[in-house]
Design a protein around this nucleic acid. Sequence first.
DNA 1: TTGAAAGCGCTAACAA
DNA 2: TTGTTAGCGCTTTCAA
Lengths: 323, 323
Amino acid sequence: MGKRTTIGDVASAAGVSVATVSRVLNGGAVREDTAARVLAAVTSLEYTPNALTRSIFSGRSTTIGVVIRDLSSPFYLDLMRGIDEVASANDSLVMFANSYRLPDREVAHVRTMDEQRVRGLIVTTGEPADSRTRGMTANGTPCVVVARTVADPPPGLHSVSLDNVAAGRLMAGHLAACGRSAVGVVRSGQRQSQVERTAGLGAGLVDAGLPSPAVVEAATEEEVPTAVAGLLEGRPDAVVCMTGRLTVATYQALTAAGRAVPEDVAFLTMDEFTWAAALGITVVAQPSYDMGRQAASLVVEAPAEPVRRVFAPTLVARRSCGE
Amino acid sequence: MGKRTTIGDVASAAGVSVATVSRVLNGGAVREDTAARVLAAVTSLEYTPNALTRSIFSGRSTTIGVVIRDLSSPFYLDLMRGIDEVASANDSLVMFANSYRLPDREVAHVRTMDEQRVRGLIVTTGEPADSRTRGMTANGTPCVVVARTVADPPPGLHSVSLDNVAAGRLMAGHLAACGRSAVGVVRSGQRQSQVERTAGLGAGLVDAGLPSPAVVEAATEEEVPTAVAGLLEGRPDAVVCMTGRLTVATYQALTAAGRAVPEDVAFLTMDEFTWAAALGITVVAQPSYDMGRQAASLVVEAPAEPVRRVFAPTLVARRSCGE
DNA sequence: TTGAAAGCGCTAACAA
DNA sequence: TTGTTAGCGCTTTCAA
């Protein structure tokens, strides 16, 4: 497997100095026939420049780091695609790590990204990683926190998130319009986003003269059946799922309990997903792809002032809430 | 944003040479109190080693490159998770790029991965990228082709794939057992894997004394309704979808055409997916997560001889084929 | 146990 | 237009 061909090999093959080779590769002033000789050598030697050594210079790679909590969630998946799209368009690669919602992994991954001297970092992590992220921005690495806002961000630390209160209100409005009144909520925990959505839902319901929703929590899919059973005891005519991750489990718990959707109970959930249209499930969608694009753009453009971009949710009405 | 702290800064702060700092960081022989002084300096200066400069030495980064055709497909998603899992366990990061099934992008991305001097490369690309991949193995970069086999692989070029013929036979056996006889196939094109699955299905059907399946092709979801309509003219009692990517569209085309599953027509598709259990859809599953782990392991272990790992498919029988 | 010094492959002044 | 010469931040001989 020998040594790889270096810029020096190309230089000797073309009978020029390494500086000249570097120039033709990066677009400096070179005489045409010299350039041709160099290019010929590059081709015949199959020379592939070393991006690592290159970035040693700028002190920074061209790679965008992404630490995702859960790749299997439709939201994060589309987010990732949006990021990848912008990265590709800017000749950047995406360096990726999945944290599986484990704080320790999040912190470790963010550190590794820092070691890799990523051009910028996009994280969907929780607070534990924040101190390192702040440190990175101090070193000139733009960071973007997704699906969460950061209190008192330093220059270079941005956020891209959803207007979660609006999402909750959208749900309340639709449910009220569909003539539902006893609303039950399933959520996975106390994450900022879900708490805000629940608050928005509650406020919207009150505005419509309806009672506040009952709330149950299920951290994992396994806990959903029990949680939903608890909810059902209150005889709700609508069940709302506050996170796309629990959509299947919640829907399944409903039908397994013998409740027909939407006849017995309306069903409304977060985040658009592949089967939603086919199943006629109404959702409040996040523009996740655009959010990914925006996050990556913030990395690429690296504005000095902290940017806080809040996206509006959309209601995609289908059959699952009746009417 | 000033210059970043370097190993030199740590050295002066601790009153030692850079060599000593390097030693305590990489585990050389250092006196205990010296090491302690260095570590203290590392902490107080918040020194984060530069992985880029580090890998300039080995001529190789610790990153595993992955070029995926389509992140939104359940197969590739799980594959990705398996890869990420093994990478993390080996302190490697995953450098990722989505090619959206565009050959040009595939080739470009593979090239970029080579420039990044990835430790190894996992690709789900088509043939156009093969020549570069071969070149990379010649330079000592292990490469793994997923979901496809490579003819006459050089040392270091491995493949991880499914036994597609067996998958097709599994389908035939199940369909026959469910009393179906007129089988129609939807596939997205002439990709090796789908052709083999179709061949396996045909062979299995013949073995069961049944007629060969009718086959239609739909490159995209948009083309599915027309394709399925064509299939339906032949009055099949079973429709098989050869790629997970078209599952939703095919299923939806069937119900939109007024065919009840499984009463009017059995439905069978490739790849396990989140909603399959809830919807009672029978699938032939690939062990995609394990395939991802295997691919990443091949990169990490880098055997010299080309390894060709073929995984067995599994039938997950549910309600969609009757019986 | 430590430090000085020579690179790793490349870019960017500065000369020629 | 080209070559020479410093480095970039780090690891690794080789001496001390």
